[in-house]
Simulated assay, not measured.
Amino acid sequence: MKLLLVSLYVLVALYLSAAWLRFLKKGAGLSPQQKVLSFLTVGIATVFWPLVVPIAYVKLLDTTVSQS
């Protein structure tokens, strides 16, 4: 089960980073410094999304349960 979850996280991370990189390549008019910062942001987002999504989901569940 853990292997399945890790595989799912990795696949989603690869998909998101590929989509973000395609979007950044289309970005005309970016200076070289802006491009570097954009790629850095994509890298950081790809690394940390597996931490943020479960935390946000648990918080959403807690809010939903407390309102019931």
Rank of each mutant, 00 (worst) to 15 (best):
A56M: 10
V47S: 00
L8I: 05
L3M: 12
Y15L: 14
A45V: 08
L61S: 07
F39K: 10
T41K: 09
I55A: 10
Y9W: 04
Q33S: 13
L51M: 03
G43V: 07
A13R: 06
Y57Q: 11
L24P: 01
V42C: 00
T46H: 01
V65Q: 09
S31H: 01
Y57C: 01
V36M: 05
S7R: 09
S17W: 08
L24F: 10
V42M: 03
L61G: 10
K59C: 14
D62Q: 15
D62R: 15
K2N: 08
G27E: 14
L40C: 11
A56T: 04
V52K: 04
V58T: 12
L61N: 12
A45C: 09
A28I: 12
S7F: 08
L61H: 07
L40V: 01
A45W: 05
P54L: 05
L11N: 06
S17Y: 04
V36C: 05
V42D: 05
Q34F: 00
L21F: 13
L21I: 12
V12D: 03
G27I: 10
L5F: 08
L61F: 13
V53L: 13
V6Y: 01
K59A: 14
V65P: 04
L11H: 00
T46G: 06
S31R: 03
M1W: 02
G27Q: 15
F48Q: 05
P50T: 09
A28W: 14
Y15I: 10
V53M: 07
L5P: 01
L21A: 12
G43I: 00
S17Q: 13
